[in-house]
Design a protein around this nucleic acid. Structure first.
Lengths: 181, 181
DNA sequence: TCATCCTTTCAAAACCTTCTGAAAGGATTC
DNA sequence: GAATCCTTTCAGAAGGTTTTGAAAGGATGA
């Protein structure tokens, strides 16, 4: 039997999680559903979501599907039950990995490709000459290159973090801490 | 004299940067202005922004102010000129640091505080008993704790990355790479 | 085959964000 | 003080996103 405090805490977290989502380009309802499932101790069905968050069937269905697409929740069938149930990934690091991978694929990759294209388009042709920082085009290219390198470095960092599973990260951090004194 | 290719590349990058922004909860125009200033070799005034991006004076003014608030661009006055000019931070790492710091303050901090409050609200009172993973409330608290720890770890990582300036990061990555083989 | 149960779809509605443009505000120069 | 120049503000318009709810789709069991 869930206590009153527990219910309040749960709903507080769900609401805040939903509010924050807007800042990150995720719809409030989708984030609330995610939070609801993250805290749920057992899989919930569409009607549970509708009831607990007061959203329509359509919205619940769309948002649940989207969450499945993101890989943040999974469908679950139960023998002898026609309903579909949903379950969230509950390991915070796995969640993080999933989100970063998806965002990288959907959002970072396109911009990286665009930058590469921009650099190709503006490749200085003719005799190679010393790069002149006063040259408008050259400094523009330089900035594009800087951003590109930044993305590449972040990519490397993420790959390193995910290497060796989630347990690696806290250990990794301790080691970095030592390196940096 | 900017070449035709350079102009095309510039506008391509600006548009893509703007498109990506929506995914991250930033308005397209604000991101486009940011990209425009990032690539600009000299400070631009409001009219430059209006002309080059075809936006209204009001929008340019609002978005420029917002960018100043974020600390991504700075105002610039020139002797003998009434206009205000704007200049972007052009170091990618400084930019990154600014963005992460601001987002942390605005978006991560509130959710961390909410989680802490949730945990306080649901502190088990009475005789301390063994935590029981089957207990609904206890497993809910556990998940909240997990998320909290995740945020704390990310916080530590960011602080480490920023320790010792931007040059530290590539070096750091190389070292981590060696540690992990 | 029909009835039931559940999910998905989608056009219309509701809602929210952003932009526009004109007006007001404020600083500087003549 | 008036004119000029530039910035800011904000109500209304425009545009975009999300939700709703009803209808269609599809599976299962009687």
């Amino acid at each position: 039997m869930p206590t009153k405090e527990m219910e309040e805490a749960r709903s507080l977290f769900i609401r805040r999680w939903g509010e924050m989502a807007a800042c990150w380009g995720v719809s409030r309802t989708m984030a609330e559903i995610h939070a609801l499932l993250y805290l749920a101790t057992e899989a919930l069905c569409t009607d549970d979501v509708m009831d607990q968050l007061s959203v329509s069937r359509g919205s619940a269905s769309m948002n649940l599907r989207e969450l499945v697409n993101w890989g943040l929740i999974t469908r679950l069938h139960r023998r002898g039950d026609r309903k579909e149930y949903f379950e969230a990934e509950t390991n915070a690091w796995t969640m993080f990995e999933t989100i970063v991978r998806e965002r990288r694929r959907r959002e970072v990759q396109p911009i990286v490709e665009t930058i590469e294209k921009c650099l190709e388009m503006t490749e200085p042709h003719g005799a190679p000459r010393k790069s002149d920082p006063n040259d408008d085009a050259e400094s523009c290219r330089q900035r594009l290159t800087d951003i590109l390198e930044f993305f590449e470095l972040m990519n490397t960092l993420f790959n390193l973090m995910m290497k060796g599973g989630h347990h690696g990260v806290p250990t990794l951090l301790k080691r970095i801490g030592k390196i940096l004194g």
